[in-house]
Structure formats: C-alpha cells, structure tokens
Design a protein around this nucleic acid. Structure first.
Lengths: 191, 191
DNA sequence: ACTCTAGGGGAACGATCGTTCTCAGGGCTA
DNA sequence: TAGCCCTGAGAACGATCGTTCCCCTAGAGT
C-alpha cells in the first residue's frame, strides 16, 4: 500500500464518518481504522486532522458539483428543474444528512478559518454554476434570479435534512420554475 | 444569588458562547466563568451539559419566534414581506452566524437525539407561524406556499451566514412576494 | 458564643483527544 | 547471511474535557 492509495482510503473513510457523525465526533483512530491504514501512514499523508478535514471537503465539493453538472447536462431541455430533480434524488439517498458544507460551517466555521474558506468557496462555486444556467435565459436581473435559486437550493438541502422530507425538493422545484418564469423578459413584456 | 438567577445567567452565557463558537467548542468552565457562578451552582441547576444545551435552544426558540411574531404584528399590511424585513435586520446584527438550530443540528444532530428533537420542533413551529400568515391569503395550495416560504427563510438564514451578505434577505423577500402572488387564487383566475 | 449548614473556589479524577515515540519484524542490498 | 531502513502496531504523552470531591469560610439559628 503506497501513499496515494492510503490517501484515497483515508478520504473515503473521512467522507463517510465526518458526513455521518460530524467532524469533532470522529477521532483520528476511528479514521485510521475506517481507512485500514496505520497511524504512521496517516500522519505521513496528512500531518494534522485539520488538513484531513479540508481535503475531505475539497474532494466532496468537486465530486458533488460534478455529479450535479452531469445530471443537468443530461437534461438540457429543463436545466433548472433538473437541478431540483437531482436534489430530490440526493435527499432520498440513505444516510442523507444535509449539506456537508453547511454542517461543517455550523460546527467549525467560527473556530477554523480554513474550513470557513472551503465552505464559502463551495457555495460560491455552486452559485456560479446556477449563474451559468440563468445566463441561458433572457431575464431582466440574472443576479437576482441566481441568488433566489441558490436560496432555494440551500434551503431545501437544509430543510430536507431537518424535516426528513425529500419532497421539499419538489416544492423548491416549482418555486424555481415560478420565479424563473416571472423573471423572464418575455414574460414581463407580454404582461 | 439564588437558583433562578443562576439559571438565567447561565443561559445568557450559554446563548452567547454556544451561538458564537459552537457547542463542543465551549467548555463547562468557560460557561461557568461567563455566567459568573460557581461550578457547584451550575451542576445544581443543570446536572449535565447536554441539558444546558437543550435549555439554551428551547429558550432561544421561544424568544426568536416571539421577536419575529412581534415584528410581523407591527406590520399588518404586509406580513409576509415583513418576515424578510425582520430577517434582514437579524442578518445585519453583529455576531450573526446563521440559524442556531441549523448549526446545532449539523454539529450534534446525528449524535444527540435530544438536540435533533429540539431543532425539529423549532422548525416545525416556524413553519406553523408561516402557515398562519399564508392562511390569511386566498391561495390554491397553502401547504405549498408555506413550504416555499419556509425554504426561503431557511435558505436565506444559512446563505447569509456563509456568504456574509444580509442583502440575501431582500432577494428572499422579493421571491416570497412573487411566489405569493403567483399562488393567489385571484391571480390564477384573472389570467 | 457555638453549631450547623450551604455555598464558593478549585483540586482531583477518569476518559478521550490529537500527536509522537518505541520497538519488533520483514524485505531490500552488499 | 548480515546489516539497514521502512513499516505497522500500539503504547505513551500532554492537553483538555465533563464531572465529582474536598476544604474552607460566612452567615443563620439557638
């Protein structure tokens, strides 16, 4: 087992354990056991727990947005509703526990600036993705609609976790469509 | 200093410290020092930290909803926009760090069932409050609009904390108005 | 004035955490 | 085969946590 393989196994274990139970609730030794590596290897790959946390969040950011982008690319006719269709699938996955970045921010955002930075970067990137979808539409205020879609995405992720109701994605989906329709120049002109 | 006074001082310190830095990051001794009471008193009032946490969340739930309800009652002409006006004021307060319940849920929701229960109760109560406002309107699907307003509330609270932008309340406010208008029976009939 | 008791300050305890250190073993080269 | 270095397993360390215990003082009641 070389360093690269250990890194992958460690991040796999970190993702599973940190997301399920929170960051501070998972100890280094549990991480080591979950990854099936030795403590020496672990500290060789990441010299401190905080770096494991940030690497976990960064990898999850990339994978999460890639999955979303892939789903949306597969539904080019209705990209914005597709976002919320994909969210609904995500909400219904076993072990869904809300947005890992929101959770991490609530737990450590005020204590560990590095974590707060990763969380802000993730949400900025998600917002940029949504901005790309909005740019395809002819809306009077793209920034406004982008932020509103982002609010629905964040709200439904968090709300679905707390209420335990994946159907909130459908509520958000219809809200998004309604807002998008109201924002289109075509619509406001025709009225 | 009697027990009741110690309880109040303790919850005041708990609210300030837990909200600012997270629950696990604040130790019992820091809580004791912040409240200005002795360790003996502290354990006389609450026999365990977990009970302090739940009492803190319960008191915050009541106070937060009372402040919101009072503000909305003072603006009877536009109750739903008033919700988001009040949110904007809250977001702009120094030390705003998002929804205490969302943060606590992310930190300990999967580990401490008692905390998860308080968080769910808070959000259910907020939803009920919004449902009362929606009930004043003549909408075709009150449940749908209630959930959508709730998503905007949760999303803007969390989003404003992460993005550090109180103006997201305005985005949410206009989204809420747009959704409410689109949902009214009057509007759908006139089209 | 003497006793009794409640309360404050803070040491002590046991558990757990992140991190470092020790040591034995096993594959490599000479 | 002998020496060497890297690794794995896990003990050890120092810090910190929640909680309990001890000791001393101060004030009320007789």
């Amino acid at each position: 087992m070389d360093v690269d393989e250990a890194r992958v196994k460690l991040l796999d274990a970190a993702e599973e354990l940190f997301y399920e139970r929170g960051i501070q609730a998972v100890g280094i030794d549990e991480l080591r056991a979950g990854a099936g590596i030795s403590l020496k290897r672990l500290y060789q790959v990441f010299p401190a727990k905080q770096q494991i946390v940030e690497a976990y969040l960064r990898r999850r950011d990339g994978r999460w947005r890639a999955r979303l982008a892939e789903y949306v690319a597969d539904h080019p006719d209705d990209p914005i509703p597709a976002v919320f269709d994909w969210l609904r699938e995500w909400f219904a996955e076993p072990g869904f526990r809300g947005c890992a970045f929101v959770n991490s921010f609530g737990e450590l955002g005020s204590t560990e600036p590095g974590i707060a930075d990763v969380v802000r970067a993730h949400h900025a990137a998600v917002r940029e993705f949504l901005a790309g979808l909005v740019a395809e539409l002819d809306v009077t205020d793209p920034e406004e609609l982008t932020d509103q879609l982002w609010l629905l995405l964040v709200g439904s992720s968090t709300g679905a976790a707390i209420a335990g109701d994946p159907a909130l994605a459908d509520r958000a989906r219809r809200a998004a469509q309604s807002l998008a329709k109201a924002a289109t120049r075509e619509n406001s002109v025709s009225l």
